[in-house]
């Protein structure tokens, strides 16, 4: 192992770290870089409460994003099938392969997507639903930044902000 910090094997538990540093690690629950000051039980409880709120907030963002995207996708799929009667039979000569070949037509730029939705095409609405799904983790990261600021945890807020900038940058780099 080349990593100097990875030398802590289960068998050497308790021999390497002093009791003091172990105490610091447990008493500092959930905040970065507070040094060696011990938190009072009230402070620790308040911090625990804040962390819980962050977890609940992030879980809520994920559930809203996921439910919304499924809803939009279902509506889009319904419209798509109602517009094309040959899609909806269980038996028939129309094959799905006409929709899944390399040359199938569907929107893959934001302007084409706008046109597709404006003209009421189901496939455009499905893509909007997929976009909501793709946006959910990104919004989750943004909520993370705000949550860590709320916890007064500046190092973690900066870490999350960096991730958010890279994510948003990736979309511009892609030219979407």
């Amino acid at each position: 192992m080349t990593d100097p910090y990875d030398s802590q094997l289960p068998s050497s538990e308790g021999e390497v770290a002093s009791a003091e540093s172990a105490a610091v690690a447990t008493d500092n629950l959930g905040v970065s870089g507070h040094g060696h000051r011990k938190l009072t039980p009230e402070e620790a409880a308040a911090m625990e409460e804040k962390i819980r709120k962050v977890e609940v907030a992030i879980s809520l963002v994920l559930r809203i994003g996921v439910s919304l995207s499924v809803l939009v996708i279902a509506v889009g799929l319904g419209i798509m099938f109602s517009h094309h009667s040959q899609y909806t039979s269980f038996t028939g000569s129309f094959s799905y392969k006409q929709l899944t070949s390399g040359s199938s037509q569907f929107p893959h730029s934001f302007s084409a997507l706008g046109h597709s939705v404006a003209s009421g095409q189901g496939r455009g609405i499905v893509v909007i639903g997929v976009m909501i799904l793709i946006a959910t983790p990104i919004i989750r990261v943004a909520v993370g930044v705000l949550s860590f600021l709320y916890e007064h945890d500046v190092p973690m807020a900066l870490v999350t902000l960096y991730v958010l900038i890279v994510l948003i940058g990736s979309f511009f780099l892609a030219g979407a």
Partner: peptide, 23 residues
């Protein structure tokens, strides 16, 4: 999810996200 979202934009622009499969 975050790692995938970082490359999803590229896949969308390249026309790899087909609605009838994605739904």
């Amino acid at each position: 999810g975050v790692t995938a979202a970082a490359s999803a934009g590229v896949y969308f622009v390249r026309g790899q996200i087909d609605p009838i499969i994605a739904a």
